[in-house]
């Protein structure tokens, strides 16, 4: 797709050069038609396609991994025992799309969720260059992880609803649904990512 779009871009530049230098003799109508194509339709159609291609590309786990700060967390998706944390469990069992796992879990399930996700990406760059690179081992998200991002999949599942722990006292499920009792911060599902050095440390402690 990228190469097709690149080829179209080259074609457009060639058309503009032809129009600019008058390589192909044409009348006023021909010039207007060409202007309509290269100045009107091309930015609209090709620009939208290129923009959309880029936005889909930056959803990929590989793109997140291009920032070396994220390398430990991306590697944590592929730890041998996937049951140690939520991220490898979801990634390795394909509970989330594997190609876009980071984006899927870290984008709010709201109308402007994807937009906020992009703004977060820009914020990462700001933090990295103006506040100093964060420690790759101790990364924290800017805001607490919202329950609704878990419940968009789990909320309506029979397994989640019938889970005895979620029904251990009256009103608990309502608290979870309202977000006042957090899935990740309440000591229930606290391990989202478990990076290699933490696994090694835990193994040493066990030993």
């Amino acid at each position: 797709m990228a190469w097709l779009l690149a080829a179209l871009a080259v074609a457009n530049v060639a058309l503009i050069a032809g129009m600019f230098y008058g390589w192909v003799p044409m009348g006023r109508t021909g010039r207007r038609l060409l202007g309509f194509v290269v100045l009107g339709m091309f930015p609209l159609l090709w620009g939208s396609a290129a923009f959309s291609h880029n936005f889909n590309r930056i959803k990929q786990v590989e793109f997140c991994a291009t920032c070396h700060v994220m390398s430990e967390h991306v590697a944590s998706l592929k730890v041998p025992d996937e049951t140690v944390a939520l991220a490898p469990l979801h990634y390795q069992n394909n509970f989330v799309p594997q190609e876009t796992a980071c984006y899927f879990c870290h984008t709010s399930y709201t109308w402007f969720g994807p937009v906020k996700g992009k703004i977060s990406g820009i914020r990462h760059i700001w933090v990295y260059y103006f506040k100093g690179p964060p420690d790759p081992i101790n990364l924290h998200i800017y805001d607490p992880y919202e329950n609704r991002d878990c419940l968009r999949c789990h909320g309506k599942s029979k397994r989640w609803n019938n889970q005895p722990v979620h029904n251990m006292r009256p009103g608990l499920k309502d608290e979870i649904l309202a977000g006042t009792k957090r899935c990740l911060d309440s000591g229930c599902h606290s391990e989202a990512h478990l990076i290699a050095s933490e696994i090694a440390a835990a193994a040493e402690e066990d030993w």
């Binding site: 990228a2 779009l5 690149a6 871009a9 080259v10 457009n12 530049v13 503009i16 129009m19 600019f20 290269v38 100045l39 091309f42 930015p43 090709w46 620009g47 290129a50 923009f51 291609h53 880029n54 590309r57």
Partner: peptide, 16 residues
């Protein structure tokens, strides 16, 4: 036209 050319080139390069 010039802005179109440079915009196209930059957006094209951004894909890689």
């Amino acid at each position: 036209l010039v802005m179109n050319v440079f915009g196209t080139m930059l957006l094209g390069v951004s894909m890689f």
